[in-house]
């Protein structure tokens, strides 16, 4: 996660331009010397800006396709969704032109009990899943810290859930939760006294069941990210922390965790943003139910827009989700920027 940059950000402007000009000038001078016999040396005053213009044009040529593509296929739909959210637009009545309704879609969503429940469900899911993943992931990272061959093998095997297709993982857990033939369902059912029909149709266990899928799939990723952080700590911290004996916990909390805080922070922010977008497991396991116990914003937007074709309303829901995620990513990008600067000054 640590992004090293060779230069300090603050020195990007003027000094860089100067150093580049000087390299260009040496290039021109070399060329001039070698070509002296055939033609007069080009004046460095007119060539340097021309070379710089050529370089700028070349770089522009490289960056333009990506920018245009992103604008057409990514930015345009987002902007379009933003404007759609102010219209009453139902695809089933294609003959009826979309009608401008102002903020009606938003007020309808925010006052609808289902909308409110979707917000609560999304937050519950994200907070619970990420909290569990962080605690477990940190524990696993600390266990994997020592750089042995055994740990290397174990680390690689922890990637199995991460690479597993989420939908297949969801279908797998759906079967594990069965109280007739699924090992997990049978165990939980036995513990609960044997009167559960299913873990996924019970309003109490449905949300934990969805959270567990997320925990299974993404805890290893947090663990491996934090392991990367642990490996990048200064040697004296590693030595002090790897000493055995009394005071291990104190050293952990006093030395290791503060040093690791930026990695923990980034892992939490990224995972939270992803958790807000949970879809596959809900679609495959509960379908938002029982009742609406596991209906999240993403799932609600999908059903409204792409099953009921209530496009304007669905756009409003996805925009609320977008706003939440933008707020998070702003925090993330801002702190990443600060983090980069911190590492560059070292």
């Amino acid at each position: 996660m640590k992004r090293k940059r060779p230069r300090r950000r603050s020195s990007e402007g003027a000094p860089d331009r100067n150093s580049e000009r000087s390299t260009n000038m040496t290039m021109v001078e070399t060329m001039g010397v070698s070509a002296q016999s055939t033609r007069p040396a080009p004046s460095s005053r007119s060539t340097a800006p021309r070379l710089r213009r050529q370089k700028a044009l070349f770089l522009l040529m490289l960056v333009a396709p990506a920018v245009l593509f992103a604008l057409a296929v990514c930015v345009y739909p987002i902007v379009s969704a933003f404007s759609l959210s102010f219209f009453d637009y139902d695809l089933r009545h294609a003959a009826v032109a979309p009608q401008f309704v102002g903020l009606d879609n938003y007020t309808r969503f925010l006052t609808d009990p289902l909308g409110q429940q979707a917000i609560v469900n999304t937050l519950t899911f994200a907070v619970a899943a990420v909290a569990i993943e962080l605690v477990l992931g940190l524990a696993i990272a600390l266990m994997l810290w020592r750089d042995t061959r055994f740990n290397k093998v174990v680390t690689a095997l922890f990637l199995v859930p991460v690479a597993f297709t989420p939908l297949v993982g969801a279908l797998l857990f759906k079967n594990l939760y069965s109280t007739t033939y699924g090992p997990l369902g049978v165990i939980v059912n036995a513990l609960a006294g044997g009167n559960l029909d299913s873990l996924v149709t019970n309003p109490v266990t449905a949300m934990p069941a969805i959270i567990l899928v997320d925990v299974w799939q993404w805890t290893p990723l947090i663990a491996l990210t934090l392991l990367g952080g642990l490996r990048s700590l200064p040697d004296e911290v590693i030595e002090a922390a790897s000493l055995d004996g009394a005071g291990y916990w104190r050293r952990l909390f006093a030395m290791v965790l503060p040093q690791l805080s930026s990695f923990i922070f980034i892992a939490v922010v990224i995972r939270t943003m992803d958790a807000f977008k949970v879809f596959d497991s809900i679609y495959a396991i509960t379908g938002g139910g029982p009742g609406n116990a596991t209906t999240t914003l993403n799932y609600l937007a999908f059903t409204e827009g792409l099953q009921f074709f209530n496009v304007g309303y669905a756009s409003a829901i996805s925009n609320v989700l977008l706003i939440i995620i933008v707020a998070f990513s702003a925090v993330y990008v801002f702190s990443l920027n600060r983090l980069n600067r911190k590492y560059e000054t070292h």
Partner: peptide, 13 residues
């Protein structure tokens, strides 16, 4: 930032 956009926001349009 584009990478963080929830897919469903871009999906309908």
């Amino acid at each position: 930032f584009l990478r963080m956009v929830p897919p469903v926001a871009a999906l309908i349009p």
